[in-house]
Nucleic acid binder design. Structure first.
Lengths: 203, 203
DNA sequence: GTCTATATTCCGATAGAC
DNA sequence: GTCTATCGGAATATAGAC
């Protein structure tokens, strides 16, 4: 079976919908915007995806379905905790420089409708919370790190990696940074962030 | 001049609009929702505020106009840096437990329309960036803290204080925590967060 | 100031020709 | 599969009586 051409109508719609939905959210996006972005007619959107909600669901599942597994994969990896933290921050911040609006999109839409959206994702992608919690508890028992709630460590890591990208428009407006400058600051920051997290737990 | 009664029609509208806009955002909110929440007729909203956009603008300015100055006030305070960080984390997390959806509202709406919204706020509330940068540089010169980009320190602090509340619905769904439990975790976390930040910079 | 009723605009969705 | 034309509903906004 041949892979779908990137210029097939269905792909053009998906590319356009991704852009518009990520930019404006479900409520802010118009089918007309998506049709124009795709260079086709509005009726085609319904021909291929039946409704706006169905099209949105496709896009959300696609984006959340690669965003969350990336986090879960690192959590699941069979490597020492400190190395895991370093790898995660590095990979994560690099990813955000490439696709900066995806985390905001996920968070915004999950807040809009937590049950329908997050639960469907979780039904296909189980977060390896148990594994990570076990690893953290094992390190605490060994005495390599101080006692800390696993969820707190996870939140601290995600906070430092993700939040700056959520407030980038605000940061740029206040500091006057342009996009390349902001990215450069974030890139340099990747190593200091993992150091900061590791220092905060190691004994 | 007498303060406006909380039960005046104008106040009822503002209270209702705040709730609905914070909950659903500009695009998701309906004038009908706001009217029902206020217990009045839809036409009154236009009588008092002319249009949905004008009503939204009023609410946004009110919320951002107290949210940002709180951050700026701490930045501006004439106290030692470490104490400033402790005070900020404590006050900030307490505030978020009380009004948890406001940061998300501000970030979401600023991302939707960065120029119009943030610039108007900044024209009345100047962030004391210069003061904080000077203080940080002075501490670096004194040798009490290591060299760090001021903007990085600010971002780290805000990340750790704000981000967990942005992903609360996700955290609750994944971990199964209820709201009081989540708040309790956050409250305990307030002190460890400021310790973590201070440890990451002190020499 | 407050209401009901209505105008107006916008948008998702569909019908039907090609 | 793709288009034009249009429907039907929803939402903002206004007119006008009280």
């Amino acid at each position: 079976m041949r892979l779908k051409d990137d210029t097939s109508t269905e792909q053009k719609i998906l590319n356009a919908a991704r852009k518009i939905f990520v930019d404006k959210g479900l409520d802010g996006a118009r089918m007309q915007d998506i049709a124009e972005e795709a260079g086709i007619n509005k009726a085609m959107l319904h021909y291929y995806f039946r409704s706006k909600d169905k099209l949105f669901e496709t896009i959300f599942n696609e984006l959340a379905g690669e965003f969350l597994p990336k986090i879960f994969a690192i959590m699941r990896a069979d490597i020492p905790l400190f190395e895991k933290i370093e790898k995660f921050c590095e990979a994560y911040i690099q990813q955000e420089i490439k696709t900066p609006y995806v985390p905001m999109f996920i968070i915004k839409e999950v807040n809009r409708d937590p049950n329908a959206l997050i639960k469907r994702i979780l039904s296909t992608q189980q977060p390896p919370l148990g594994d990570v919690i076990a690893q953290i508890k094992s390190e605490i028992a060994k005495g390599t790190i101080r006692h800390i709630e696993p969820v707190e460590l996870l939140l601290n890591t995600l906070s430092l990696c993700i939040f700056p990208f959520l407030v980038r428009p605000m940061v740029q407006t206040i500091t006057g940074m342009d996009v390349p400058t902001f990215n450069a600051v974030m890139e340099r920051r990747a190593t200091t962030v993992s150091k900061m997290i590791i220092d905060s737990i190691k004994t």
